[in-house]
Design a protein around this nucleic acid. Structure first.
Lengths: 297, 297
DNA sequence: ACCATAGATTGCATATTTGAAATCATGTTG
DNA sequence: CAACATGATTTCAAATATGCAATCTATGGT
């Protein structure tokens, strides 16, 4: 019914059944029959049609006037949604945490751009939360759930925090075999996380510790500097000391235990369709994080 | 496609496929399949559905938000047009010329109301042209074409003018056998029509006469009074002296000839659908005029 | 007045959609 | 925790719509 009305509007717009047929990519026979159908359903003729000329009947005129704008709006909406979805090439603006992108995600970003030369990636890195809508980003990667109801969120991975220290520090300090041993050490850490919740990898036992901090900062990067400067033991997200762990500048303490887990989310605004390429990126990141298996470095 | 979107909106509104199916009077199977179809076409799932619960997916949410208002507007338009058309019962306001309705059309109006007790006819009679839109009339009957482009017009009959006089006048006056004989008579007539154009019924010959008027008025009713008062011969529309002709108070002069023909139109506003009952009335009048065959009393 | 032709329509085989009933799935209730 | 009931889905025959090609038709040009 609505589809036939759209067809009717198209016929009027193109000034003929043939034109509409061509524009819509359907055979003229179908156009004829669907129009006849519509006329039968409405119980009145809409178009005076002869081989060469086409004219609206009075009823046709009324129906055309009534539906024209509506059909146009439908088409605009349809186009908008199509555009939002189906562009695999084109610009893709992504918001992501800077630290995380520099460390863990670096190979992923490099691979993504390498593998998708048709996607024009604009990577907006920042350590503080930016407004997605203001930044006109298509999608964002965030650590920790966002309390924003205007955002859709999908968990795409998780990242553990690990207990680390520099080899130099550990060499001159008591051995740590169980979490309780940490009480005998110099601890540096985030002022935002006063309780360390450590979970054993296999046993799943949870131990809670309230370390006596030797130094605190709200900036995790600074906590890392203290660790690198052999000042003590810290509980840090893998992303923060990813490279140092690989290079051996920093090594894990209590490797069988991990700290609280922080979830990683893909986030995008509600009310808008996630484009195919944004969806693709989301899956790409998810796969990458799955393979990298950060939760058990 | 759009039909399926409408269906989707209905499903969301009713909170389930079954509800929508019932509301639209189609089997649930069709609803299921059309929804599946739409999802396939759009390339994404719109609804999370289990046996008991139904929830919009994120994409479904977007599509619903985008199309909800449009679908509603569409439905309103559809209802409006349906209402305009398909009410055979209900009120019908008709504008018509008073003279014409009193005379020629009188039996028709009586018959129409008798035959259609379900149509509540409001007959607005007037001898001067009233504004249809202001009068909120559904349809009007007019004599002569209207120069208003905002009106649709359809010719539904025609009315001849005839040459008439009272028997008393004719008894004491010379016999009239050809139009030229009129020059020897007392002529009364409309000041708006100084030239009499007479056409022979069979031969189709046209004769033009410029009578010397004994009396003139812009009011045809007054012309009739003169005739009834035996003051002379007049050229009058059949509608004006319909009853007198039947009763014999007035008789035709030159019965083989008739004056100029005036077309009778059904007239209604553009941009609105003619309701079924208005259409019906139009046809009714047309048939009546055809049978009455005014052009050759 | 004729013809050529754009453009609408129809015939027929095929593909798609529909409808009624059976089946399946899942939340609720005894 | 099993039986029930509601609501979604699948099955299969029948109805409907589609696509291609042939046909028809009115109009502009000659």
């Amino acid at each position: 019914m609505l589809d036939d009305i759209v067809l009717f509007i198209q016929i009027v717009r193109h000034g003929g059944l043939a034109g509409a047929a061509q524009h819509l990519g359907i055979p003229p026979a179908t156009v004829t029959r669907r129009l006849q159908n519509l006329e039968k359903e409405l119980g009145c003729q809409l178009l005076h049609r002869s081989a060469r000329r086409l004219a609206l009947t009075q009823e046709g005129e009324v129906y055309y006037q009534s539906y024209r704008d509506l059909v146009e709006e439908f088409e605009i909406t349809q186009q908008r949604l199509d555009r939002e979805r189906s562009q695999l090439s084109g610009k893709l603006r992504v918001l992501a945490p800077a630290n995380f992108s520099h460390s863990v995600l670096r190979p992923m970003w490099l691979a993504f751009t390498r593998e998708h030369p048709d996607i024009q990636l604009e990577l907006i890195l920042s350590n503080h939360l930016e407004d997605m809508v203001k930044a006109k980003a298509d999608i964002a990667i965030r650590i920790g759930e966002q309390p924003d109801s205007l955002l859709y969120q999908q968990k795409i991975g998780q990242m553990a925090t690990v207990v680390v220290a520099s080899p130099e520090y550990l060499r001159q300090a008591p051995i740590v075999t169980v979490p309780a041993d940490l009480q005998n050490h110099r601890i540096v850490g985030s002022s935002l996380r006063l309780k360390w919740q450590l979970t054993h990898r296999e046993a799943g036992v949870v131990e809670e510790i309230f370390p006596r901090f030797h130094a605190q900062s709200n900036d995790l990067a600074f906590v890392k500097y203290w660790v690198l400067d052999h000042q003590g033991i810290a509980l840090l997200p893998v992303s923060e000391i990813f490279e140092e762990l690989h290079s051996g500048t920093v090594i894990r303490v209590l490797p069988q235990w991990q700290g609280h887990v922080r979830d990683i989310y893909a986030v995008w605004p509600t009310g808008r369709l996630l484009s195919e390429k944004a969806k693709h990126l989301r899956e790409y990141v998810r796969c990458f994080l799955e393979q990298t298996a950060l939760q058990s470095i």
